[in-house]
Design a protein around this nucleic acid. Structure first.
Lengths: 346, 346
DNA sequence: TTGAAAGCGCTAACAG
DNA sequence: CTGTTAGCGCTTTCAA
């Protein structure tokens, strides 16, 4: 800046004004122009550090994620956040928080760098305990629910996922629709099962507890699903996630049943391996990880900068689900919901 | 710091010295102690920004990754880098670079924040073109190869992966060992196939081109693998990655063949879905993503700080591979190799 | 419409 | 052994 000032023959303050777009009737347009040209020519890059030191705003956002290392979806969410932030002139500092201690340590580090706010994500919608060290910052939860509702969050509409998936199976002519879920309690699980149940009820169908299996993994899970096949002979399956869907695929394969022919399956988030291998048989409800990251980041920055967000840009649409029984791949983006904290909605 | 100085009755410089551990025979131990106590009491957190502004060292490292969003392994690598850096007092700024333009934009952002160096990764060992904007920084490649060998890199020993996997299949009694690879050219692919070939030669077995199938994905890939089964009747398979392994599993299932019984399979990086479902049948060579991130980060910091790295801590061991035909899960960490740039090795 | 000057929180050379 | 002083590069009153 000093160089530019010297070169153009003005003072540093003038340069600062111009380069920050704060020259509105304050600097002669001619001079402003010359400043801009000089800056360009000299390849001026502002020093973000110095600026932050002065303004005490870093334009850095921290992303705290439990299980980054173990889930394949973290990437999409992070990418979404990054794209949104990048457009807003922010950058993302990602940090893993597999144990509480690590989180505190990392949060400490980020605080030292003066991050402006945090995104906190659990990678599978569940009730989380937000670390106390975070509560003093602007904070938005992604794919996670705050027990006390103190923080705004971006979550998939779990109920609707279950409802839509089940409705689709009913429309495809399924009459005995099984629910293959997860044995761990989660918001996602509760919501999706409720949606499943409600869809059955709304279509005048029985909710039969025997058609529900909550399984963990590996052999026992596979055997449970095989038991479900043999005992109940379902003609449709709603699977909580990719791993659960796999047990259904495997059990069906072992029985010579084809997906999309003998039985119908809707799964949530069947990921890369499935996409590369089973695509033609797949009907997937795809969790909008990218979008969650994107909108959470937008929301956070709005909060940091104390301005409102453009609600009309909010993605609420659900794509039409193609027929299960046709061999066309089907990806359905699910709806997002936003929970604002009390403070936010005031 | 001012407050601490005031409170203890010394000057800010003294506080600075003490808090940076630079008080060796320069500050009276008594005073140093009092300073530390005061700092603790007041919950002093150094302002990293101010420090960086002064020292022009930020202790921030940028991680540029192609395909973060689409690969499930990014997490492990990032986690490894983060853990290593965290221990060294650094933090990681992750940035995605799916297209070159995006990379340049993000690199620009990181430069403005004054990052000290970069990690650059491709997520599947291949020759990469390092963006010019990066070449002026300390830089280490992870799971990627530099065409011109100008930069140090951390890569899996691809040849050895292929060699070990194939040897294991031979030891298990396989006589017709197929290679199921990827139709895109990659360092990983070349190296692993060479290892496969060499292992066969070293054991006096024929290398039969008909036993090799390079496939892409989805239906055509599955059909190619089914063709391989039917035409060649292999009794062992070395699979380039998880997706390829899946075609083998599926084709075997359709023929009523069991893995570990009728045929043997060694795959690379069979990930979460497999681990949760097929575990008992799996023999996996697990790419050490975490370790790659970890050691690349260490290497980078050594370079940034101009010091040597402790080579003895370098992970070079390969675990013993359990028998294929026993139904015990097997994960084998592969060896890493490091390629130092000319400059580094000088 | 512009410039001078102060200061964000810290480090480091130098003087005492 | 400790304090004084001068900035790092930028923003922002305030005065001209």
């Amino acid at each position: 800046m000093k160089q530019i000032a010297q070169c153009v023959g003005v003072s540093v303050s003038t340069v600062s004004l111009v380069l920050n777009g704060r020259d509105g009737g304050r600097v002669k347009p001619q001079i402003a122009q010359r400043v801009r040209e000089a800056a360009d020519e000299m390849g001026y890059q502002p020093n973000a550090l110095a600026r932050s030191l002065r303004t005490s705003r870093t334009h850095i956002v921290g992303f705290i994620s439990v299980e980054v290392a173990t889930t394949p979806y973290a990437g999409g969410m992070i990418q979404g956040a990054q794209d949104a932030l990048s457009a807003l002139g922010y950058v993302l500092l990602t940090v893993n928080g597999d144990d509480a201690q690590a989180v505190d340590a990392e949060v400490g580090a980020l605080r030292r760098y003066g991050v402006d706010g945090f995104l906190y994500s659990a990678m599978s919608n569940r009730v989380v305990d937000v670390p106390k060290s975070l509560t003093r910052f602007p904070l938005v939860l992604v794919d996670a629910t705050d027990a006390d509702g103190r923080f705004p969050s971006i979550e998939p509409d779990e109920f609707r996922i279950g409802y839509d998936a089940t409705t689709r199976l009913i429309d495809a002519g399924c009459r005995r629709i099984a629910y293959v879920g997860c044995a761990e309690p989660m918001v996602a699980q509760t919501g999706r099962f409720e949606g499943y149940r409600q869809a059955l009820v709304d279509h005048g169908m029985d909710v039969d507890e025997r058609l529900r299996r909550d399984v963990l993994n590996n052999g026992p899970a596979l055997r449970a699903v095989e038991g479900l096949f043999d005992a109940e002979r379902p003609d449709g399956f709603f699977c909580f996630n990719d791993a659960r869907a796999w047990y259904v695929y495997e059990a069906a394969a072992r029985r010579g049943l084809t997906i999309g022919g003998d039985v119908s399956v809707v799964g949530v988030d069947n990921h890369r391996v499935f996409a590369e291998t089973l695509e033609p048989q797949l009907t997937t409800i795809e969790l909008p990880h990218y979008e969650m990251g994107y909108w959470a980041a937008n929301r956070l920055v709005a909060r940091i900068e104390g301005r409102a967000i453009n609600e009309s840009a909010w993605p609420r649409t659900t794509a039409v689900m193609p027929l299960l029984d046709t061999p066309s791949p089907a990806k359905v983006h699910c709806t997002l919901i936003e929970k604002s904290s009390v403070r936010a909605s005031r």
